[in-house]
Design a binder for these strands. Structure first.
Lengths: 340, 340
DNA sequence: GTTTCGTTATAAAACGGTTTATATGAAAAG
DNA sequence: CTTTTCATATAAACCGTTTTATAACGAAAC
């Protein structure tokens, strides 16, 4: 293959200077239309493509954003949380709509924060995507802020830090889905999930849940609350623990669909019928939720919208605008598992 | 924020030349250990990061590969095929293990092939990921070859073109899963899927399926074969069509899990019991497969391995090696839907 | 017929590294 | 003591653009 054509080759063929070529290809008003068309034709003919490294180097922007996915370390090699996968899809789409390229990277464990995409000028900004627990990363977030890195973060608001976070309205979601189950006549709710400051999203869901109970004069029974991280296995374990406690309950609110799915497995092993004996609801509306048996009632986070907002706000930040946090509505998706 | 430090700043502080800095930071043997350590310390202190655009420009390589995802145009805005999402995950992991960055892009429709990642030097090579039907893209593949673009392709071998394709052993998979169902005593098989040259993978699965029937002296009934693209909706439609034909059958081999899931929905609507009246098996082993009711027997494609091989082979191509196509084993995952 | 202005093009200077060709000084060889 | 050799460092060229500072030219203004 002959060497790749450069803007100089085009300049030579067109009988103009290289800078004119550069301008013509970017439709600069500084070049006469006739000249521009001639140059663009030659460029097409030579199959010329602008060298992004050169152009990015000079212009100091990459038209690229980087997506950093945080996986829980416990989730070593298995499959990725389907909710994030779904987000990833919508973010990719949103980027390409805006004419940006997307770099994807997994932050596999907390010790390697070495994907310095913006520092190295590979990207103009970052999207941080993980499940709660940014506390572990707090010092790293601070470092990002200090370095004036442009980034947005999926999840609950990070307290005391000026961070543009975009998240689902977990509180509303938890409240709405709980109220829906209450309307089915359930009174004794168990909660599965880590409702601590380590998981601000789970915490918000739990608080919404509690609010719904209060609004309906129902008791919040701490004995029916079991910790669990967001995985299916954790859900299974938590449900087993719950059953061992021997406390009576007729409904479960799981902080994530994966937890719910794991819990269903545990219940079914003990031949507890869903939703007759125990109603169960989750959160996220992952693809699997509509295929469980019975299908899982859950709270849908609009990932399409979320991806769009994440990208849009990030681009605004890059443009130097000030943008605040925002919440995306959470809607209950009613299926069979809640006894409706 | 003060201007970002450059290698010149470090050179100045260290009292050496800029080229020495460049070498020191890349652990070149041309620089004395003492000097190197001094320089690296200063770099750390200044929070210096190599500008990738500059370094890529000069060295003419990006340590980045691009993943192009082909979605069926019919699948306009809905969710992405979970199988690809799973591949995406494993490819991302494989890349980061090899120290490469990954650009992700959706080729939304056939008309915009403008993600010229390699031509623009944004990436050193390409991974093409789609479901069969590369025929539509044939001319574009030819163009890629002509331009000496480095790329690997997921899927069946493309005939007559020197392309490094990596795919699952669809033939074996189709055969093995069919034989497994035959062992359960089923004799009248329906096939749902587009078994044409448009979908070389589905075709191979079908051919393996037929081989298994032949090996067991069973009849291949063309009336029980219904076309379907790879989506759930297509599976639903195809199953309805199949039922309307009125031909008797006691087993379905669906060319993909999504088709199988759609077909199950159709059967259940007609109150046909699975697996008692009709056994059904799919292909891919997407996450949903283990949560359907009954859980779906299917053929697992090892996406972890696939991602690894795709990346490894692409890097070999980039290194100038010749690498051939390869097949990944397909293993039957037995669940309830086949009547085992 | 100068002067002024607007349009279009150019030459040259970045951008921040990597790499090639070259220099320096000390140790080894003659 | 001179010549080679080796290890280390440097200066300068280069990668292919974008951008800034200038120039050239014809038309309009004076």
């Amino acid at each position: 293959m002959k060497a790749k054509a450069t803007s100089f080759d085009i300049a030579y063929q067109a009988g103009v200077s290289q800078s004119t070529v550069s301008r013509a290809l970017r439709n600069s008003p500084l070049v006469n239309e006739e000249t521009r068309i001639k140059i663009q034709n030659i460029a097409k003919e030579l199959n010329y493509k602008v060298d992004k490294n050169a152009s990015n180097l000079r212009s100091q922007q990459s038209d690229t954003i980087a997506l950093l996915l945080f996986e829980d370390p416990s989730n070593d090699d298995s499959s990725i949380n389907p909710f994030f996968l779904s987000m990833l899809g919508s973010i990719t789409r949103a980027c390409s709509n805006k004419g940006y390229d997307l770099l994807v990277s997994f932050q596999q464990s907390s010790n390697d924060w070495h994907a310095d995409f913006e520092d190295t000028n590979k990207a103009d900004g970052l999207i941080l995507l993980g499940y709660g627990d940014y506390e572990d990363y707090q010092e790293k977030l601070i470092k990002l802020i200090e370095q004036d890195t442009h980034f947005v973060l999926w999840g609950a608001e990070v307290k005391d830090l000026p961070i543009t976070s975009i998240g689902c309205d977990n509180y509303q979601g938890g409240m709405k889905v709980t109220e829906h189950v209450i309307k089915q006549g359930r009174k004794n709710f168990a909660f599965l999930g880590d409702a601590s400051s380590h998981s601000p999203e789970f915490l918000a869901r739990y608080q919404g849940h509690c609010q719904a109970l209060k609004n309906n004069n129902l008791e919040i029974n701490e004995h029916l609350k079991v910790d669990a991280i967001f995985t299916e296995e954790a859900g299974y374990q938590a449900a087993c623990e719950l059953l061992e406690r021997g406390e009576a309950f007729d409904a479960i609110f799981a902080a994530s669909d994966l937890i719910a799915v794991g819990a269903m497995r545990a219940l079914q092993e003990k031949s507890i019928t869903i939703p007759e004996q125990v109603a169960i609801v989750g959160f996220d509306d992952i693809a699997v939720a509509s295929f469980t048996f019975p299908p899982l009632t859950t709270v849908k986070q609009d990932t399409q919208l979320a991806g769009d907002i994440l990208v849009t706000k990030l681009l605004q930040l890059i443009d130097g605008e000030k943008v605040g946090a925002s919440l995306i509505p959470a809607d209950v998706v009613v299926r069979k598992s809640c006894g409706a």
